[in-house]
């Protein structure tokens, strides 16, 4: 009897750590493969890309703030390949951050390198990698939401497969390092874009929800051009709009250097 139980326990353990790759059985893709495709679809389109981003932030007291910036992104390992990335964020609005530049070298296996350029002082400031799960420029989006969360930081499980979505549940490998217990992602089966994400606390209460409001096909890449992040407990939300999106604009690697921190690369920012 005891032996029997331990065998059941062993099978359960295998099921938990290595969940069957999706029900029903004919599903060909594992949760990990889906997540990989989703990350590539959401964050690695093309070799590089540019967007004019505007954020409309509404806090719990219904006060509105806006942020406008140009975002340049370049994949170090090439088109659609998940790997290191370079980001160049040039701020237009509000006035107090105008012409500031935030530059990130995002590294898969190490902390990011980050710089901030303050034009009034002509100061190139190196900034310490911060908690990735803190607000990006005061919005409801986190740094990680903008640049992507490391795939290997969570254990992914395919919860459900509907006509339209793969529903993936992800649990952090280091629960102490994050504020959520787990999150779910609704990944579009055709485009592999994550169309909705919900973050849960330990009591299974959703407290944060990301929703894609509009997708456009740009240069062959389905792109979430309009999305929002809602704080379901405190209230408030941030609406994110991507305009003038373009991929494969031929961004040279040198753009992501001190030279262009001090001297904005206008040609690529328009």
């Amino acid at each position: 009897m005891k032996k029997h139980l331990s065998r059941i326990g062993f099978i359960l353990l295998i099921l938990l750590t290595n969940p069957p790759a999706g029900f029903p059985a004919e599903a060909a893709l594992s949760a990990k493969a889906i997540v990989e495709k989703a990350v590539a679809a959401a964050y690695y389109q093309g070799k590089d890309g540019r967007a004019q981003v505007s954020m409309s932030i509404t806090d719990a007291q219904h006060r509105k703030r806006t942020r406008r910036f140009t975002l340049l992104r370049r994949n170090v390992s090439g088109a659609g390949v998940i790997g290191d990335q370079q980001f160049y964020v040039y701020f237009h609005r509000p006035a107090d951050v105008k012409k500031m530049v935030f530059m990130v070298l995002k590294k898969i296996d190490k902390d990011d390198d980050r710089w901030l350029y303050l034009p009034a002082l002509d100061l190139v400031k190196r900034i310490a990698a911060s908690d990735e799960r803190t607000s990006f420029v005061g919005s409801h989006f986190f740094y990680e939401d903008v640049s992507g969360r490391g795939m290997d930081e969570d254990v992914h499980e395919l919860l459900e497969e509907t006509d339209q979505y793969y529903v993936i549940q992800s649990r952090p490998k280091k629960p102490d390092a994050v504020e959520f217990a787990y999150y779910k992602n609704w990944v579009d089966k055709k485009t592999f874009l994550p169309m909705k994400a919900e973050y849960y606390k330990n009591d299974d209460r959703a407290y944060r929800r990301y929703t894609v409001l509009k997708v456009e096909l740009i240069d062959g890449h389905p792109t979430a051009v309009h999305s929002e992040m809602k704080d379901l407990i405190g209230g408030g939300k941030t609406v994110l709009n991507y305009a003038k999106v373009k991929y494969d604009i031929g961004l040279p690697e040198t753009i992501f250097s001190e030279r262009y921190l001090r001297r904005a690369p206008r040609k690529y920012l328009r």
Binding site: K110, D111, R126, I127, A128, A129
Partner: peptide, 11 residues
């Protein structure tokens, strides 16, 4: 010299 050091930036 300036670079990443431990959990921050050293110079």
């Amino acid at each position: 010299a300036r670079g990443a050091l431990w959990r921050g930036i050293g110079n």
